[in-house]
Design a protein around this nucleic acid. Structure first.
Length: 539
RNA sequence: GGCCCCGUCGUCUAGCGGUCUAGGACACCGGCCUUUCACGCCGGCAACACGGGUUCGAGUCCCGUCGGGGUCACCA
């Protein structure tokens, strides 16, 4: 039976690199009909575990990465929190000592540190002298009488070679003599990660340990622990880590300033910030940025797009397949096609996947996806008015590919709740209406046409405008841009006829009138009347 | 510094000795379509880190150099 696990420590957020590791574990288990479980590595920080864990579990659920055993779902080997399994680790430590694979060590940190420094001065590798190792109960008593306290150290072999057959990296060798007598149990009796991890992996019957590359050098000591305890050795697969955009350094949550200098990263971030602002979201860089999964949920990415992108970050099927549904990726995944070199996280490519997935989303689903964003922004009430369905459908239809993430709908809120007063793009207003002499008279005339057009829908409006253009003997460009600016205030937008139909007759007519008024009798504006040029630039 | 890992376009990658004058995707740059924007379509730019071997033949195998990274805690 194939069983894999992902072991987050409760940090309060889900990191994109962590998700990639979890995804590969999940995929591998699903592919082979095995189980994927979540174990919580909270041996160190005990405070607020529940609170710091919630966003992580939420993130996995949102992404559709489900776990068969672990927090909130339980399982036959519960509990799945390391902080609740300390007794097991202590028993294992004792067993290791009894079997001669570990020992009680009474050295103080200072003494160890002194040995380490001496080794460094003499330019030789540090190997603990085991001077304070207790070999007998008499030793222990003697040390304790001196007021010393014991930690448990691994009694690592000092010769020989460990050969590891890693499922991703192939054969890797380590000299045992390079390994240190690592501490597995602290003086206060609590146990450390490596011991805990090995014990749990055995207790949970983990068959494949699939984890990030940074654990590769930790593997010898874990293998040693497992051997000492008489456990079978799980299969190891060390994944390359996820690197920073445009570099080979490991992606970290703390180097945002640096990433922001990357144009693509900055663009994705800025897009997200804009949406967050429209939603009234309080965003701290700590928890709201493109390295944190929550960012994408808040902004309105599709989980499938993220998972699809992450799948290809370090794995590929062949030379062209890029789009995978969940079932396709489960069927296609294999560890031997995992790349060995680190892959840098490219938010621009993630955005491209998002775009494609969004395009494929059926209109009705897109409406359902987008609605909560409108509600959160206070544009649509909750529960929504009963006629919202067709309205939104028309809007989403007119918007087409322009809605790349769900939050983009907020850009078009004006169609759902038309503003009393338009905000104008002044340059567009000038260029399309104020400046061309024919624009205002044409707008006035066309306004009359609009008043009479029946029905007020896109195809009919289209016909009406073309007839108008023919009658007036003008180029369509002379009027169409003017209309757009007059009814939306902006130079860019949906197809014009969809725009008019969406606004409706009354609103369209009002806005044209409003715009004309504005130009004919400009309101006393707080803005200076003309551009102020620096003296040197004056003609 | 020791040990370990890695090294194909800016980025993700295909390539498992000849079919590679190195393929695809994202980004970028042109053009087309078009009432704007977006989409779409067409085209372009752009890589085997370097040096030695092995071989009839090397991006592909071996060695070295260089470069990058990871790890060396009573953190996980």
């Amino acid at each position: 039976m194939i069983r894999t696990r992902f072991a987050p420590s409760p940090t309060g957020y889900l990191h994109i690199g962590g998700v990639r590791t979890a995804l590969f574990n999940w995929l591998f288990a699903r592919k082979h009909g095995g189980q994927f479980l979540l174990r919580i590595d909270d041996t160190d920080a005990q405070r607020n575990v529940e609170e710091a864990l919630a966003p992580i579990l939420h993130g996995f659920r949102w992404l559709g990465i489900d776990w068969d055993e672990g927090p909130e779902v339980g399982g036959p080997y519960a509990p799945y929190y390391q902080s609740q399994r300390m007794d097991n680790y202590r028993a294992a430590a004792a067993k290791l000592v009894a079997a001669g694979f570990a020992y009680y060590d009474y050295a103080t940190t200072e003494e160890i540190q002194a040995e380490r420094e001496a080794a460094e001065r003499e330019k030789r590798q540090f190997t603990y002298s085991r001077r304070w190792m207790a070999e007998t109960d008499a030793d222990r008593q003697r040390f304790e009488r001196e007021g010393r306290a014991a930690v448990v150290r691994l009694k690592m072999p000092r010769e020989g070679t460990l050969v590891l057959d890693d499922l991703v990296r192939g054969r890797v060798e380590f000299d045992w003599a390079r390994e240190q007598d690592h501490v597995v149990q602290r003086a206060d009796g609590t146990c450390l990660y490596h011991l805990a991890s090995v014990v749990d992996d055995f207790d949970f019957q983990i068959s494949h340990v699939i984890r990030a590359e940074e654990h590769l050098s930790n593997t010898p000591r874990q293998v040693f622990i497992a051997q000492g305890l008489g456990y079978p050795r799980p299969q190891y697969a060390h994944l390359p880590y996820v690197a920073e955009p445009g570099s080979r350094n490991k992606l970290s949550k703390r180097k945002l300033d640096k990433y922001l200098k990357n144009a693509d990263f900055a663009k994705v971030n800025e897009h997200g910030q804009r949406i967050a602002a429209a939603l009234g979201l309080a965003t701290s860089a700590e928890t709201f940025n493109p390295v944190i999964v929550d960012f994408y949920e808040q902004v309105g990415y599709l989980p499938d797009a993220i998972v699809n992108y992450l799948l290809l970050l370090g794995w590929s099927l062949d030379d062209k397949t890029e789009d995978f549904s969940r079932s396709e990726m489960i069927a296609a995944f294999s560890l031997d096609r995992v790349n060995k070199a680190p892959a840098s996280f490219d938010p621009a490519k993630l955005a491209a996947f998002q775009e494609r997935h969004m395009q494929r989303l059926p209109a009705k689903q897109k409406v359902a996806f987008v609605l909560p964003f409108l509600q959160r922004a206070g544009i649509v009430s909750s529960p929504p008015p009963c006629d919202i369905g067709p309205k939104l459908l028309a809007l989403v239809d007119a918007a087409g590919d322009r809605i790349k993430v769900a939050g983009d709908i907020l850009e078009y809120a004006d169609f759902l709740a038309p503003a009393d007063k338009l905000e104008y793009d002044e340059k567009a207003l000038e260029k399309r209406i104020a400046k061309p002499p024919e624009a205002m008279p044409l707008l006035k005339k066309f306004r009359e046409v609009l008043a009479a057009t029946e029905p007020f829908d896109a195809p009919t409006l289209d016909r009406a405008l073309h007839q108008f253009v023919e009658r007036e003997q003008i180029q369509i460009g002379q009027i169409i841009h003017a209309i757009r600016v007059a009814v939306t205030g902006k130079a860019v937008g949906f197809g014009l006829f969809e725009t008019l139909a969406l606004l409706g007759r009354e609103c369209s007519l009002n806005r044209i009138e409003q715009t004309l008024d504005r130009i004919e009798s400009p309101a006393p504006s707080p803005q200076p009347p003309a551009a102020i040029l620096p003296p040197s630039a004056a003609p």
